[in-house]
């Protein structure tokens, strides 16, 4: 069990730095879009109790009652009253077509309120990844054995002899 420590770094330090800068810039851009473009819409809806649920026409059996009706003026109490032109099946209609209400920027769609928190996905990815790696290191304490733990490389007839000898 030797650690991975041999040879020289294969990419020079400046190259690594350059790649990392590009990476940080990309991360910043995608968080910035979230904050600057979607942020106003998120803020304007923050005080309100209802949140956007685009899949109001999803199977009502699973839907949260709070999510059952769209937060628009056209509020219908039950399915019978819904206009016939409402799509009846979720396929193909999750891509948001509703106009945004914010004065600036776009409307971030999603099924859950938490998805609309700016940079939620970046934070969730970061936290999830750190948890994953640290948990895997703990897992290693329990499940890591020597490379030839199972002895699968031993000659087959040797095993047979051993068994015969035992018998």
């Amino acid at each position: 069990m030797s650690e991975h420590e041999h040879g020289l770094p294969s990419v020079d330090a400046r190259g690594v730095k350059r790649v990392l800068w590009i990476f940080y810039a990309a991360l910043a851009v995608f968080i910035a879009i979230d904050v600057v473009w979607f942020g106003p819409d998120w803020l304007s809806n923050l005080g309100q109790d209802t949140h956007h649920v685009e899949s109001a026409y999803a199977d009502p059996a699973h839907a949260d009652p709070a999510h059952a009706a769209p937060d628009t003026e056209e509020h219908w109490p039950n399915a019978e009253d819904s206009p016939q032109d409402q799509p009846q099946h979720p396929v193909g209609h999750t891509a948001e077509t509703r106009t945004d209400q914010a004065s600036f920027g776009g409307h971030k769609h999603g099924h859950y309120a938490f998805e609309k928190v700016p940079a939620f996905h970046a934070l969730y990815g970061f936290a999830g990844f750190v948890f994953l790696v640290l948990a895997a290191r703990v897992l290693r304490l329990f499940v890591m054995k020597d490379e030839d733990y199972y002895g699968d490389d031993a000659p087959l007839d040797a095993e047979q002899h051993a068994e015969d000898g035992h018998a």
Partner: peptide, 9 residues
């Protein structure tokens, strides 16, 4: 964002 956030980790 999800992917870059994970890569940042």
């Amino acid at each position: 964002q999800l992917l870059l956030g994970s890569a940042a980790a």
